[in-house]
Design a protein around this nucleic acid. Structure first.
Length: 611
DNA sequence: TCCAGGGGCGCG
DNA sequence: AAAGCGCGCCCCTGGA
């Protein structure tokens, strides 16, 4: 396997140290669970390998024991800050600390870092990446506490019992975190571009802290408002297993319109048969195909589908399962997507329909500060490729309008659709038609994604700006490629191989952009959580759990968007933090390269009032 | 009765 | 209009 680099700019060295660099940057203190349940605290000199051996000795309390009872860990952490707490998996340690009201400033998540170092082309030649698979590669992500882990009560976040249930401190005798940290340090030090990986690992670990904190704090959610929305749309809540009134009515209308008295509209094959039998030449039952035909069944059927979706995805059952004590909690899965984006497990937290955002309402005396990064992906591409002309187009605040003003394309919509096609690999319609003009106007950026696509088509791997590697194509992919070169390969086989080739090219093309955008977002989050903490406390304790009861805190994250729940008096300060953090993230990734990252910020009581 | 897979649709 | 990328999760189906 070969890795192809495209150049780019180096990052600044540390993501969370802040403007005043501390001498603790390389200081790591390792926490390890002993078989007897006690916790070992391994100070830096012994635990962190050559790089940290020269750093100051850990400031854990003088005379601190090397082993403490598990209950003492919060006190040790409080007394030991600042250092980079190093552990096998953030969800195996941090929820417990948060439950005790203890925040951690910085950590090093060995599990997440291992995954990155295993797959990064920058570290491919290191001992860690070349070593045989071991227990660290197989360490499953620990689930966060919450409804998913403890559906019986849902309200599990504060109890040690539930924490033990949710994130069993399963003794991992085979795992030596201090030794793994040392291996990871060696891998970074001997990697192609240590600064990038160092930043990536710090950002990923900071993301793990932010994720645990958001799970701990939850998103303010008004069950009463949610219930009103459901009742207004569906009718009152029916007994379990029954359709709400509105769905019953619509189903009846659909059956009549199709002359199919026994039709279950939830059965796609039956629905398709009924549609065809009624003379409608649809191939699927998808809403965009239905929307194109003219027939009395279309309107009630589309409404049925939309309301059925609301009921099954975010109905009363969802509310019962995922919202407790005024908070929606999900399990953020940091690095859960190969590109480095997060996924979530529980409640479909990244797919909350817009119609439900009215239920996201700040606590009394508090406010929601909602921010999203405008046009993040094209801006990231400009930085990634180092395309000065695209940077110029971005300068006015609207990169697509800037492209029009630069004479690249005729309309803003062409610019937007064209860039989308460039980043996703669009091959049809307006997108493909406009691409050549974008390639003339912004040759550096377009060449960058085209090159990433070619690399993928060859079955090779690409990397994000900070070095996260794309997965190599699987064995089946290679088999199909090989079979297309057989003497007796038929046309269909060759066509299949070609289509698969292009599909992998679209994946790697998008990987570099989506993945680097995810890195920007990690840096943004890291900067936000540090700056929010520095804003300090305000007012009387609210309903937010310690350590955030009087502090602004992250409550939700959605790829390029955050919600901060804050005491009302701090709203403006938080808004400024969100803007400043975006610029800091840009500097961390792209140094002095002048691409900017504007964010739209709204200070609102209710999520749906943002933008 | 359980489970994998597909269609569909919500989000970025 | 959707397309082209990345997800999670619902329902139903069909095979074990």
């Amino acid at each position: 396997m070969r890795f192809v680099t495209f150049g780019g700019r180096g990052p600044a060295p540390d993501v969370v140290a802040g403007p005043a660099k501390r001498d603790t940057r390389t200081m790591y203190t390792v926490l390890v669970r002993r078989p007897d349940g006690r916790v070992g605290v391994v100070p830096p000199a012994a635990g962190a390998g050559a790089e940290a051996a020269v750093a100051p000795v850990a400031r854990i309390p003088a005379g601190a024991p090397a082993e403490v009872p598990a209950e003492a860990v919060p006190a040790v952490v409080r007394a030991g800050e600042p250092t980079r707490w190093t552990w096998d998996d953030t969800n195996r340690w941090y929820p417990e600390l948060l439950a005790a009201g203890t925040r951690v400033e910085r950590c090093h998540d060995l599990r997440l870092s291992r995954v990155i170092l295993r797959h990064s082309p920058l570290s491919a030649a290191t001992a860690l990446a070349r070593a045989p698979r071991d227990a660290w590669d197989d360490l499953p992500a620990a689930p966060a506490p919450g409804p998913a882990a403890d559906p019986a009560t849902g309200d599990s976040s504060g109890t040690l019992f539930a924490l033990a249930e949710a994130a069993p401190a399963a003794p991992q005798p085979a795992l030596d975190p201090a030794a793994e940290l040392s291996r990871q340090h060696d891998a970074v030090a001997s990697a192609t571009d240590p600064g990038r990986l160092r930043l990536l690992l710090a950002a990923e670990s900071a993301g793990a802290l932010a994720a645990a904190e958001m799970n701990h704090a939850g998103l303010p959610w008004r069950a009463d408002v949610h219930d009103q929305i459901l009742t207004a749309a569906l009718g009152s809540r029916p007994p379990a297993g029954r359709r709400p009134d509105r769905l019953k009515e619509l189903a009846a209308v659909v059956r009549t319109a199709l002359d199919a008295p026994d039709l279950n509209p939830d059965s796609l094959p039956a629905l398709l048969r009924a549609l065809n039998y009624a003379g409608l030449a649809v191939r699927t039952t998808s809403k965009w195909e239905l929307a194109e035909i003219d027939h009395p069944v279309v309107e009630p059927l589309l409404e049925y589908k939309s309301l059925a979706r609301l009921l099954t995805a975010n109905g009363w059952t969802w509310l019962d399962t995922w919202v407790h004590n005024g908070r929606f909690r999900t399990d953020y899965n940091v690095g859960g997507v190969v590109t480095g984006r997060w996924s979530t497990s529980g409640g479909g937290a990244l797919q909350l329909p817009r119609a439900l955002r009215r239920a996201v309402i700040a606590d009394p005396g508090w406010t929601l500060v909602v921010a999203d990064a405008a046009q993040l992906e094209p801006r990231v591409l400009a930085g990634l490729a180092g395309d000065d002309r695209m940077v110029a187009a971005a300068r006015g605040g609207d990169i697509y309008q800037g492209m029009v003003d630069a004479g690249a394309v005729a309309t803003r919509d062409q610019a937007k659709v064209g860039m989308l096609g460039a980043m996703y690999g669009g091959t049809t319609g307006v997108s493909a038609a406009v691409l050549p003009r974008l390639a003339v106007a912004f040759p550096t950026a377009i060449a960058y994604v085209e090159r990433a696509a070619r690399v993928g088509e060859r079955g090779e791997v690409v990397a994000t700006h900070l070095g996260r590697g794309s997965p190599p194509p699987g064995e089946a992919w290679r088999r199909t490629q090989g079979s297309a070169f057989d003497e007796d390969a038929d046309a269909a086989t060759e066509a299949r191989a070609r289509s698969q080739t292009r599909a992998w090219g679209r994946f790697t093309r998008n990987f570099v952009v989506q993945g680097t955008a995810a890195e920007w977002a990690l840096c943004w989050l890291a900067s936000i959580r540090r700056q929010l903490w520095e804003l300090g406390e305000e007012g009387a304790p609210g309903a937010a759990p310690a350590p955030f009861s009087r502090r602004p805190h992250l409550a939700y994250f959605l790829h390029d968007e955050v919600i901060v729940h804050a005491p009302a008096a701090l709203g403006d300060a938080v808004a400024q933090v969100l803007r400043d953090a975006a610029q800091e993230a840009g500097r961390l990734l792209f140094g002095a390269f002048p691409i900017t990252f504007p964010v739209t910020v709204a200070i609102v009581e209710c999520y749906s009032d943002a933008k």
